[in-house]
Design a binder for these strands. Structure first.
Lengths: 175, 175
DNA sequence: AGGACGTTGTTGCACGGACATCTAACAGTG
DNA sequence: CACTGTTAGATGTCCGTGCAACAACGTCCT
């Protein structure tokens, strides 16, 4: 019995997954340090401000915003609470839907965003600058394959879970 | 004045960063649901068990382990507390270093890992199966560029932070 | 020996996020 | 119109994580 049974899930896939985690965590950590240190602004807050700034009328429905910044609705509620407390955003009622709320970027919020953006870009660039033009052409297509659909193409054939004494799938062994 | 001043940090880089975040979050969320639902095992715990299983003697120093599973030492301390409470790992003193501790995979831990591994692989595969052989050959090199070194190749030239009324760098605009 | 300094692992603390639950407001039905 | 179901946000509560501080040990130097 082979360790890997089909092409559907090779060691390569797991390798990619591990690297993806590492990359994301490292960039996030670095970015958090920089943003927090230089502007007292957590990355999640930056994301909110940035998305608002990019939205028409500098406003977004809470629900929309939550989806875009990859946060639960409750999580966004608290986050916007903080941002509102600091005067970076405000909440405004929605005309056509009485239960709807807009999170609106304030002028102070826009200023803070403008201040922090160079730091943000520098932080991201520190890692991603190594990608050349050619890479930039390829990667989005790849990541789109990975991140866009959670639906199963096929049930993905199994792998022999643990051969005794053998390294576990999903890991580079330490021999 | 152009929006992007140098090639060092283009909109493409930010696009990649966004997609990287999305991919990682989506996979993680899905995986967490599956692992938790089917085996009552958080992803972080799975990671620890898997790394231990792949290590010689099924054991790893706490510090080593923390680095590998991308956790702070304190975070790992608590996590191993839980795993030990559930009998999945045990702590053993280190012979040659009196302050060292090994986290050791127990038999129960190995069993749980074996049970959960198919779920884990299926969960990852559900997203990554879309990558073909050719992709698998390319991606690791790309992610290595991104995730391996946090040191700056160069200070990464700046970007014009915010043109008024324009979408913020780092975002796909909503026109 | 004996200190200065770094390392290893644990703890107090606070923060941030998710889940479940709640209320208010829509939308559709009889 | 009441009746049912769904959606938008806000809260109570719990849990996991990181940071700073700490104790114990190791290392190196003089």
């Amino acid at each position: 019995m082979t360790l890997l049974r089909a092409e559907s899930l090779s060691a390569g896939h797991l390798e990619v997954w591990r690297m993806l985690q590492r990359a994301q965590v490292r960039i996030t950590r670095h970015l958090e340090g920089e943003l927090l240190g230089a502007h007292d602004l957590p990355p999640a807050s930056y994301d909110v401000l940035a998305h608002l700034a990019g939205a028409p009328g500098r406003r977004l429905r809470m629900n929309d915003l939550a989806e875009r910044v990859l946060l639960s609705r409750s999580g966004l509620t608290r986050l916007v609470d903080r941002l509102q407390r600091d005067g970076l955003v405000m909440r405004e009622a929605c005309a056509d839907d009485a239960r709807g709320l807009y999170a609106v970027l304030s002028d102070r919020g826009a200023d803070r965003l403008a201040e922090a953006t160079p730091t943000y870009l520098r932080g991201v660039g520190m890692f991603l600058a190594r990608l050349d033009e050619e890479d930039l052409a390829r990667v989005p297509a790849l990541l789109a394959k990975v991140g866009d659909l959670g639906s199963a193409p096929e049930p993905a054939e199994q792998v022999d879970p643990l051969a005794p004494g053998r390294p576990v799938p999903g890991l580079s062994a330490a021999p």
